[in-house]
Amino acid sequence: MARVLLIYDNEAVAGFLKSILEAAAFDVTHVSTPFDAFREALQRAPDAILIDFYYKNVDGLYLIEKLRSTAGLTDVPFAVVSEERDFLLSLDALESGANDVIRYPINEDDFIDRMKKICPAQRTGGANEP
């Protein structure tokens, strides 16, 4: 079962994303502050990180950069959830090393497909094999 770390400060949206992922047999841990994010990420060694781009009071890009440069987290794939339909923001997320950008409104099937694609194959039962 693929473990996903969900970093999101809006409880309602986080609950929604978590329920979709859990229905597709992902093991989801939700944290709502950047401090918790670092602690959990280091402790649990997740298979993928799903992060809200516009984090309250913390620059989303900065948070991604910091997570990326932390030893042990450099290779963890991550996807970014962006509430804005802003091309440059998506591009910046990809530039900073994100594997995918998920935009609102969320299409459940598409969302799960994308998450399976970025998680390592053995964890999702080979879902991303051709």
Binding site: L88, L91, D92, L94, E95, S96, G97
Partner: peptide
């Protein structure tokens, strides 16, 4: 010009 791509994958 608004961006220059530096990421290898991109």
């Amino acid at each position: 010009i608004v961006r220059v791509i530096t990421n290898e994958r991109l």
